[in-house]
Design a protein around this nucleic acid. Structure first.
Length: 412
RNA sequence: GUGGGCGUAGCUCAGCUGGUUAGAGCGCUGGUUUGUGGUACCGGAGGUCGAGGGUUCGAAACCCUUCGCCCACCCCA
């Protein structure tokens, strides 16, 4: 039976789960398109080296969370752990980069080999946007607004946290400072932890570990290492958010897991998801495109956890419209004919043509338990007279209509 | 990778310090009701008690192993 199990952290999705997920997906797409972003689909499998070069060789994602395998000609491939690198690769591969501003979105499954817990699966679904070719605060603000619009439309209470990491030089001097600072406090950490922190010192500042927090709270924060120009850019972004009345919290401890982030970074968090409380995370990555071999273009984007959001939205009651039952078996085809006329007449209706063997009484029972609002029973009588009884299950009313009236009845 | 909790019907769970035939509610299904639902009543199906091994006269229960789920660390969306 082992071969009939799903892979750990990769559940089958159906019923309510998938209803929730597709509601989030639909709203994401709707909002992306309303901001005039274009859809992009890249393969789920890429060369592993792409992620080593983008997310970073030392990042946890690449070090221990990538599903990798050799294909038959010996290349090391992997299941994508995130979406940005693949999209940037595709823009370069297809020669789509120019001075013009480009706006793309994507949506699909990502894979990371992690211990599953609340809000964390091994196959999970992300939607994301990337705005390429604009480095000013205007683009920061737009990307932040796209995220906010989605969360608003989903009716979710959230908190926006932002920070500014600075460009390569600022970030490197901050890293150097942190390494030295950690070295001075080396005795406070275990060997293993210490070497991990040395490898990625910025990680220490948003650690939940009490021990680390106690030490790191005396360290200087990133703002001490930003250039005047960088401070100015961040101030512009923050000012614009104020003007637009977008609430935010500056969190100088906010850092991101991928090495490619520079400049503005942000996270939308919620409080009902336990430890995995980030539902949207993103930021500026002004060096990534160049480093992967493309033009030297600034860019900013975010990724959104579709399944995380799907866990916390409320689902409005879905309505199914018409259940068409039959009185005698030979009337089924006529019932299907009526059903299709109704569908052609109004494509947004959900119409079930009953195909089972239950009698009329059972059919009514089924229609009710399946959540249909109207029932039409079609039989010899209806076929002869072309007059139908439309039963409203919620109000216990029956309306008698001819075919033309029937079409009108369901036309709005 | 490290902790803690948990696997019994499709779902939510009960099942005492080991005791003979495995329980409830919900759902499903048949009937009361052969062209009209919701409520009610009566019946039915459905379980190698996660898997493998061990202890025992006897294991859903105790021990070991393993797989999975949940939560947290870590990491991140």
């Amino acid at each position: 039976m082992k071969d009939l199990k799903t892979i750990r952290g990769m559940p089958d999705l159906y019923d309510l789960d998938i209803e929730r997920i597709s509601r989030v997906e639909n709203i994401c797409m709707e909002v992306f398109k309303s901001f005039n972003y274009q859809e992009f689909r890249t393969p789920i499998i890429e060369n592993k080296s792409l992620f080593q070069r983008s997310a970073g060789e030392t990042s946890d994602i690449v070090q221990k969370e990538v599903y990798e395998f050799d294909d038959r000609n010996g290349e090391t491939l992997c299941l994508r752990p995130e979406g940005t690198a693949g999209l940037v690769r595709a823009l370069i591969t297809n020669g789509l980069l120019s001075e013009e501003i480009k706006k793309y979105f994507y949506l699909g499954p990502m894979f990371r080999y992690e211990r599953p817990q609340k809000g964390r699966k091994r196959q999970f679904f992300q939607a994301g946007v990337e705005l390429i070719g604009e480095g000013s605060s205007k683009s920061d603000v737009e990307i932040i607004l796209v995220g906010k619009t989605i969360l608003d439309k989903l009716g979710i209470n959230f908190c926006l946290e932002i920070n500014y990491l600075g460009g390569e030089e600022s970030l490197n001097s901050y890293r150097t400072y942190l390494r030295e600072f950690l070295q001075e406090n080396k005795d406070s950490f275990e060997e293993k932890l210490y070497s991990r922190l040395q490898r990625n010192p910025v990680r220490a500042i948003d650690s939940k570990d009490e021990n680390i927090q106690k030490v790191i709270k005396d360290a200087k924060d990133i703002t001490n290492f930003l250039t005047d120009e960088e401070k100015q850019l961040f101030a512009e972004t923050v000012d614009t958010l104020d003007q637009l009345k977008v609430d935010y919290k500056i969190n100088t401890n906010l850092v991101r897991g991928m090495d490619y982030y520079t400049g503005t970074v942000f996270e939308y968090t919620v409080d009902s998801l336990g430890a995995q409380n980030a539902v949207i995370g993103g930021g500026r990555y002004d060096n990534l495109i160049k480093e992967l071999g493309g033009k030297d273009l600034p860019a900013i984007g975010f990724a959104l956890g579709i399944d995380r959001l799907s866990e916390i939205i409320s689902l409005e009651g879905k309505t199914k419209d018409v259940f068409i039952g039959y009185a005698e078996a030979k009337s089924v085809s006529y019932a299907q004919d009526i059903g299709n006329k109704l569908r052609l007449n109004n494509g947004s209706l959900v119409i079930e043509n009953y195909l089972g063997n239950a009698n009329v009484s059972k059919q009514l029972k089924k229609a009710n338990s399946l959540g249909f609002k109207f029932v039409i029973i079609v039989g010899q009588e209806e076929q002869n007279t072309k007059i139908f009884k439309v039963k409203n299950l919620t109000q216990d009313e029956e309306t008698t209509l001819n075919e033309v009236e029937l079409m009108e009845f369901f036309n709005g």
